[in-house]
């Protein structure tokens, strides 16, 4: 019983596996975006069915299926040096998007995608070389933005047109979808020179900025000094005027002293003497001077009695 059951499962598994293998041998799948080219005993079976889905074939070695990717794929040239019209060396890297449009022609003429890209790269290199010879450096790099954009696009179009014309003549069964100048550069020595100039320009700018700072600093200080001097002079002038006003006001009162100028001067002298004789003044006096004359013998003055009489 168990042996029978085992045989059933073995048979089932074997049947499933054999079925898979048979399907694998007799059918193939074409995904969307690809085309399956059926090659029967060396000849491409035409017309080529370009629809995706499940397809059938005879097993190998009768039928061979080559799946061709019909989607756009990219290839790039190397960053290659060229000479512009104004004898400037520039490096260009071109990238192009291409795809197969005629699978039959493609297989006959180019065989594989790798072969196709190799051929396309050499065509692009050639077209680029010719186009570069017709432009000057300032056509591609220019501070006039609009002009530069126009010339840059024209340069790309020129390569594209040349390439498409050549591809049409060559009849490879492929088309270019887009072509772009992906990178532009200078040879290394030129790049180094540009770097050096950028450094020198920045260094000059640094020095200029510091000089400007120093100059401005000096200007700020000197301006403040001048301002101080003029303000102090202004204050001095104002003070002098005020003092003059005081002197003028005092002069008005001097007329009173005219009534007895000698007395006024005597009193002024007394006032000065008081002012002068401040603390720790050394006085040299003789007994001849009043009141020290009292110290002299017989210094009793003659005092009048009833002086008022």
């Amino acid at each position: 019983m168990e042996t029978k059951r085992n045989s059933f499962w073995t048979f089932l598994v074997a049947f499933i596996l054999m079925s898979i293998f048979v399907v694998y041998l007799f059918a193939y799948q074409v995904p969307a975006g690809k085309v399956g080219v059926l090659i029967r005993l060396g000849d491409i079976k035409t017309p080529i069915d370009e629809t995706p889905g499940l397809k059938f074939r005879l097993p190998w070695p009768f039928d061979e299926v080559r799946l061709l990717d019909m989607r756009t794929r990219l290839f790039s040239t190397k960053l290659q040096e060229c000479l512009t019209k104004d004898k400037r060396n520039l490096n260009f890297k071109i990238t192009a998007g291409w795809r197969i449009v005629d699978p039959n022609t493609f297989i006959n003429r180019l065989k594989t995608v790798e072969e196709a890209e190799k051929s396309l790269v050499s065509r692009v290199d050639s077209a680029r070389g010719r186009a570069v010879g017709e432009v000057e450096l300032h056509d591609l790099i220019n501070e006039d933005f609009n002009l530069q954009q126009e010339k840059f696009a024209a340069f790309e179009d020129k390569i594209k047109e040349t390439l498409n014309l050549e591809l049409k003549q060559a009849d490879w069964g492929v088309t270019i979808d887009f072509l772009t100048v992906q990178q532009i550069g200078f040879p290394q020595p030129t790049t180094n020179d540009v770097f050096k100039r950028m450094i020198a320009e920045r260094s000059e700018e640094s020095k200029k900025i510091i000089s400007e700072g120093e100059s401005e600093g000096e200007s700020i200080v000197s301006k403040a000094e001048a301002e101080k001097r003029s303000q102090l002079a202004l204050a001095d002038a104002k003070a002098r005027i005020i003092r003059g006003e005081g002197d003028a006001a005092a002069a008005k009162h001097y007329t009173i002293f005219r009534q007895n100028p000698e007395l006024a001067n005597y009193l002024r002298s007394i006032q000065t003497l008081r002012k002068v004789m401040t603390e720790r003044t050394t006085l040299l006096l003789t007994t001849k001077q009043t009141p020290f004359d009292l110290l002299e013998q017989d210094a009793v003055p003659e005092v009048k009695i009833n002086p008022g009489q």
């Binding site: 008081r274 002068v276 004789m277 401040t278 603390e279 006096l285 007994t287 009141p291 110290l295």
Partner: peptide, 23 residues
């Protein structure tokens, strides 16, 4: 005048060094 003069000497003498020379 005498009194004024004497007052000035007094005031001056108060704070000053006093000296009298008697020949």
């Amino acid at each position: 005048l005498h009194r004024e003069r004497m007052r000035a000497i007094e005031e001056g003498m108060e704070s000053a060094l006093r000296l009298t020379v008697v020949p």
